[in-house]
Design a protein around this nucleic acid. Structure first.
Lengths: 211, 211
DNA sequence: ACCTGAACACCGTTCAAGT
DNA sequence: ACCTGAACACCGTTCAAGT
């Protein structure tokens, strides 16, 4: 979807033969495995290549830098979450504001907690990269989907929908991260699932009036 | 304040002579400068030592690993923010809930935006470290200060104060981070300052009842 | 078109030698 | 007690040579 055009982090070249495609897939899979089992600090291009069963040279044929590998991984995850958010927004058009809020919270939390270990690993990965463009693109996509959703509410009118969509996005992403990024207990996660819907509902009601 | 007892990230030894104290101060100052001017990926123990005007060997005498240096920097920042939060909690005892909420939001945002470049740099730094213990200790301190504050509200009774303090902490830290971590415009920051008080007030009202 | 792996510059960390 | 800087193991990245 969002493909950095000619940026330093884009893949050096696309695989054109079946053999090459296998190589790229193996590298991706190996990257996730190394990340999960050894951690980012031990993630070495040599180690990834070895795990993938290819030479370092092959890895650098498709990913001009170690960061390009991590960037691609992060991009895939962020776009999957964004897809979930946008799909929910499409489904909830014209519903009452409360239901929209609950559905959105649920969809976001679900997407982020589907594989908590991977999500945590990617929080760490993201800090190592220049993610301004990627995060900006994903944020814009989510923002407009959420704003349009809010404007379609069947029972209330949301004031300043841009500011509210912005704050809602920051709240979903921020609170989830604050809880998951540290070694959250099962109880912490349960508390988040219980409180975040209340928080978002209350905010949206405060920022809206009768139709 | 929170000192990892014998952990791998604690300083190897404390400076005992005036000369040594100067060395440590110079290393700290150099670390911040390199972080701000070159970024984390270019932060090298050799570079920090050179900037500080000492040899690498001296650096390793006080910080057994590069991470110990970064850990100390992060610790100082987090404790400064926590001090601001706790001081505000102490001052706002027995006030109306709305005023508490506003004061808390204001204090947190102020502490985090006093030096935005440094805050952003430390978000990146934190991801490189094993911060579970540090974040846990700071979170516990903030949590109990906020919970006690909420319980002292003069006009309303907060239900499930632990869950609410938890969610409030995650909201303050999370939304602020979500905005600052990406290259936030002046407008983004203004939106956060405008919406976060509304968000927190609305949530606290939803989670409380009359006395 | 794709793959290999030795080679290069550089980094974190150590330690024998100094004051 | 503190400082120095050469030395070591290892990492990211390249490139000449292969199929």
């Amino acid at each position: 979807m969002t493909r950095p055009s000619g940026g330093a982090l884009s893949a050096r070249k696309q695989p054109r033969q079946a053999r090459a495609h296998l190589t790229v897939d193996a590298i991706f899979e190996a990257t996730i495995q190394v990340l999960l089992s050894e951690g980012l600090s031990a993630l070495t291009t040599t180690r990834v290549a070895a795990r993938a069963g290819v030479s370092v040279g092959s890895l650098y044929q498709y990913f001009p830098q170690k960061q390009a590998l991590l960037f691609a991984l992060l991009q895939r995850h962020l776009e999957a979450v964004s897809d979930a958010v946008c799909a929910t927004c499409a489904q909830c058009r014209a519903m009452p504001l409360d239901q929209m809020s609950d559905a959105l919270v649920h969809a976001y939390l679900d997407a982020k907690t589907r594989d908590i270990a991977a999500t945590r690993a990617l929080y760490v990965v993201a800090a190592e990269l220049d993610t301004d463009d990627l995060l900006g693109a994903v944020a814009r996509r989510n923002h407009s989907a959420i704003r349009d959703l809010l404007l379609s509410a069947g029972d209330r009118r949301v004031h300043q929908p841009d500011a509210v969509a912005f704050a809602l996005s920051a709240t979903l992403a921020g609170t989830t991260r604050a809880v998951l990024a540290r070694d959250a207990t099962q109880g912490d996660l349960a508390a988040l699932r219980a409180e975040l819907p209340v928080l978002c509902r209350a905010y949206l009601v405060a920022r809206s009036g009768p139709l």
